[in-house]
Design a protein around this nucleic acid. Structure first.
Lengths: 253, 253
DNA sequence: ATTGCCCAAATGTTGAACATATGTCAGCGT
DNA sequence: ACGCTGACATATGTTCAACATTTGGGCAAT
């Protein structure tokens, strides 16, 4: 038999490669990406595949195709950053792009306290299980954080923690929006390689308090606890809750 | 010369036709849509075009392609309802589908009061102009509402009003989320054909109060004013703020 | 200098052929 | 009678080649 294992190790994904180039800033809004035939040659695939992948980028608003001219990178505001595929790319490649990251963190500062408040009102026992399991996972991989693997696992549970809170709102729109927080959480990982501005133990404690507020059905306290968590994240990222700091200035009473 | 006018009245969009069938409930989650070759025949186009259109539905999570079997409609929860294309389809075709509409209205009840509060803190003079122009447009087409054209214009300004508030948050994520409110606003139009459960003048007055709160930079009052607007919408739609009525039970003080 | 025409280049569309995955069912053995 | 196996039909996935259309710019005539 012929070596069947290698039969479909997937063709090189042009969409993936272009996304990396664009998100990392190599191609910027207004630039033109290479033409179809050039990409065919570069990746050694046929034109149908290239067109299929380019369409993927068009559908999420990242590039714009001008018939007879080329494919242009669109303005950031046109990008469909609510698309899970886009946030996945952002998570992987946008680390060196602070502009996009700041926008996302600003949104999180807006939204997550409110989501936490909503979760505190609607969370079921099953939701609490998911939140608690994620929290315990965070604690499990908290120490011995010099290993990159450990840090990655910690982030996975961090994401799971926040996603569980979004899902506890029991609304499909909120649940789908949870994609948006991945980029900033993973950015936290890659940045903590260089700067240790945040104490993991304190961060964990803030998460614990948020969890307890949701469990105890205390919406107002959950709101504040989520603010505290986000403030810690913002500080660790060196993004000092930009001018649009709603989360901080909210006055609930 | 040959009749050139008809050369590109666009090929029939299979994606559009399938979207209509799916959103209106003709095909439901679990059903299989016609196979590629059947669609080729039905719409008299080639297979590449069909595949291109089907891919569009796959990318937004509406259908799932099973190699060698067919294309299946996915569960509602898997649909990427944050995609502008999806909300556009929903606006046009989902009017008779109350299940999806309820989810969206629930989300609006969650989100819009908060967006209004945020807008009350960040809105610039330019934002206020946009909001006010939309409000005046609503008032202009309020009366003589027996004309379908008048009602459509009123809805356009209604959408513009709410979108302007989303944009006044000055965050690209909120701004993009404004797509989500189109379906329920347009549903309001089609339903007010049959049931006159809402007084347009009262609705306009609620919008005016919301606008004034944002102008006066009164976040808490804006929150409540937005709740009042949404409650009116929910009542007009006959959707009595479902069990997940966060917007009603919020207690800010 | 402006206008109009024509051409090159890039994207858009089409059709066919081949490859791969999936479900069905007849045939065989236990 | 039950279950496994392999061939077959069907539907989706991939590749290739050719043609159509759109865009931008050069060139020439006015």
């Amino acid at each position: 038999m012929k070596a069947k294992q290698r039969k479909s190790p997937l063709r090189p994904s042009v969409a993936e490669a272009l996304a990396e180039s664009i998100f990392s800033g190599h191609y910027q809004p207004g630039d033109f990406v290479p033409k179809e035939l050039a990409l065919c040659e570069q990746f050694a695939i046929n034109r149908s595949a290239v067109r299929s992948d380019l369409r993927q980028l068009v559908d999420v608003g990242i590039i714009e195709r001008i018939s007879g001219h080329g494919s242009k990178v669109r303005e950031y505001a046109d990008w469909n950053i609510l698309d899970p595929q886009v946030t996945a790319w952002m998570t992987r490649y946008a680390a060196p792009n602070p502009k996009v990251q700041r926008e996302i963190l600003t949104f999180r500062l807006d939204v997550e306290p409110y989501v936490a408040m909503t979760a505190a009102k609607r969370a079921t026992a099953r939701d609490l299980v998911a939140i608690e399991e994620a929290y315990e996972g965070m604690g499990q991989y908290l120490h011995n954080a010099d290993s990159g693997e450990e840090r990655r696992l910690h982030s996975d549970y961090d994401v799971a923690f926040h996603e569980a809170i979004f899902k506890a709102t029991h609304n499909i729109v909120w649940a789908q929006l949870s994609h948006i927080l991945r980029p900033s959480i993973y950015l936290l990982v890659s940045m903590s390689n260089v700067s240790e501005t945040d104490d993991p133990a304190e961060s964990l404690e803030r998460h614990r308090r948020l969890m307890e507020c949701i469990r105890a059905r205390q919406p107002r306290e959950a709101f504040r606890a989520a603010q505290a968590v986000l403030a810690g994240t913002a500080k660790a990222l060196g993004l000092e809750a930009p001018e649009t700091s709603l989360g901080r200035s909210v006055e609930l009473d």
